[in-house]
Design a binder for these strands. Structure first.
Lengths: 335, 335
DNA sequence: CTCACTCTTGCATAGGTTTGCAAGATTACC
DNA sequence: GGTAATCTTGCAAACCTATGCAAGAGTGAG
């Protein structure tokens, strides 16, 4: 009862060849009779096919590598859980890698991913160098970027419509009667950060206003809080669009706590993501919802398509999301 | 450049046998000369050993299965990230499974884990039936429970000292001058929930007080919020110990928001976990810290010990944590 | 009953690595 | 320089499954 039970063992017990049991479990053709014999023998012995061995010969490990940078931003655990569930339905499972680094560490991570012969990779908000994308392409491993774009790349990616979304926020804030509007951006080294900043600036212009000042929040709470203080104290901002909810919470904490400033009476705050915490009573954050479910499904769909068909086109999908109005920002009087 | 490059390819290029290249990559003995030849050939070809094949023959996949129930409770993403990092240092990686269910779903999850030939399993706060533990034992797969105990089991587990911790909280609240103290427990189907409840009750007695009322919060925000309302409105509680931070936030939101009750002036709230959010300005939650780092290291250490040595003893480790005093509960005047 | 045709099934090989074994190469020592 | 001891190295088997191939079993028609 110690050693693993193999397809050979159940073949022996069922009085058939090893190929027969393989065929039964891989869904190939087999007569009803052998099906039954094999199944009952397998049940008796507690046999289950060894995925490693199967992967070795089929060239499909049924493992998807997920590399994620910011697990403290609730958006990502949430996405992770949904990705896991959707992939599970398709018979895939997630090998997870976390990495803060941007350069060498990411490269090592990819090395390790490829060691495990993953069938595909999802990179959630992590920077991928051209060298890495080439390596993946050379190895024939599909890669899709989740919630992170790549300029002019032919890379598959799914993001929300950051320009459009940020523009919606701009329009909302202007209509809300704010005069001095600032922006704490996501890390400007990321396309996501850039796009939201750009969409916001042009949105303000389109609404006849302009951006007073912008500071890079680096996706970090402390940096964002500091930035908020600067925007309010030095630039007299009465509204701030913060590049994601995670930073927006820090901003609200800092304004209300250390600075004794009322949100939204003195300063309006708008975030981006609509993580579940945004609905919590302590924040009631007005924010642009990223439709996680649709993003996850789109990601899995394109990734699996690329796995099935090696030269499927690398889709670049952007998904539109609604502005969720709560109480952290003044609401325009009329529509 | 299409097909994978194998150890055989690099052997050919280096002018040695395939075994030679295997030996240099698996760290077995090899002369300096062949080491060099093999390494440079491998670099030129971009060779890396196939972990699936390696796992097939060594019987070690270097994969650890992690199954986790509550990813929306920040404690777990945090633990996940740390587990991932610590395991990575030891050459292991995490195949992740999320499951809400308690019965059949957990079983299927374990089936799938075993299909992947994981070297060990970490179950974070999920209920494991005896049947499953037996299956693991039969398959020779070590299992350790993280942040979740098991009554009278011989199972490896690492938890914080829930009885002691809850008792500390009891003492703190009594010293704080509270008269009517209630408890919103974690799910009473979990040992964790039971232990904290019990530790709290006996802690109150030891301090010359008693528990006014207790309600099962089920680890859910909505249930906890409802419970808080009952405790305050119907039982006149002036202090509540909430079974974990995740629920405590909901309680604070509900008291302050819907019920217009001041925390801590009217009601003191204490949580358990000390997730990073507990330090945020919106909550400043007084809570008992679970030392995640030490718990994670203990978990990995015991798990790896069990993997190395099949009949290593299944340690049951409980780790003590400090009470972190913030502002969500009245602080005793003197010491 | 025979023939042609389709289903099933077993044999044997492949997939990429590790490892015991034995032979060859090297070292050490006298 | 000779012998014993130690290193290196290649050969081949093993890990567990999937699958092409060919032979056998079954089916239907004439």
């Amino acid at each position: 009862m110690k050693g693993k039970v193999t397809s050979f063992d159940v073949a022996q017990r069922a009085g058939v060849s090893q190929s027969a049991v393989s065929r039964v479990f891989s869904g190939a053709s087999a007569s009803k009779a052998t099906q039954d014999k094999v199944r009952s023998a397998a049940d008796a012995l507690g046999y289950r096919p060894n995925r490693l061995a199967r992967g070795l010969i089929t060239g499909r490990s049924k493992i998807i590598g997920l590399v994620v940078a910011y697990l403290d931003n609730q958006f990502y655990p949430d996405a992770l859980e949904r990705l896991s569930n959707v992939l599970k339905e398709q018979g895939y499972h997630i090998l997870i890698f976390t990495t803060k680094g941007r350069g060498e560490e990411v490269k090592q991570t990819f090395d390790q991913l490829m060691d495990y012969q993953v069938d595909g990779i999802i990179a959630a908000s992590v920077g991928i160098s051209d060298e890495l994308t080439n390596r993946c392409a050379a190895a024939g491993i599909p890669l899709v970027l989740f919630n992170r774009g790549q300029r002019g790349g032919a890379l598959a990616q799914v993001t929300s419509d950051n320009l459009q979304g940020a523009a919606k926020i701009a329009s909302f804030l202007v209509k809300g009667g704010h005069r001095r509007i600032g922006h704490i951006s996501g890390w400007m080294g990321s396309i996501t950060g850039q796009d939201r900043a750009q969409g916001f600036a042009s949105g303000l212009q389109a609404a006849g206003s302009e951006l007073v000042h912008q500071i890079d929040g680096m996706y970090r709470r402390d940096t964002a809080a500091e930035a908020a203080e600067t925007l309010v104290s030095e630039h007299g901002c009465d509204a701030i669009f913060v590049g994601n909810d995670h930073m927006a919470f820090a901003v609200m904490d800092h304004l209300r706590g250390a600075m004794k400033i009322s949100v939204p009476n003195d300063v309006s705050i708008v975030g981006y993501d609509d993580v579940s915490m945004a609905a919590w009573g302590a924040y009631e954050l007005t924010t642009l919802r990223q439709p996680v479910n649709r993003m996850v499904h789109a990601t899995v769909d394109t990734l699996l398509a690329m796995i099935e068909d090696a030269d499927a086109s690398a889709d670049q999908i952007t998904i539109d999301g609604p502005l969720v109005v709560r109480t952290s920002a003044k609401v325009p009087k009329e529509n």
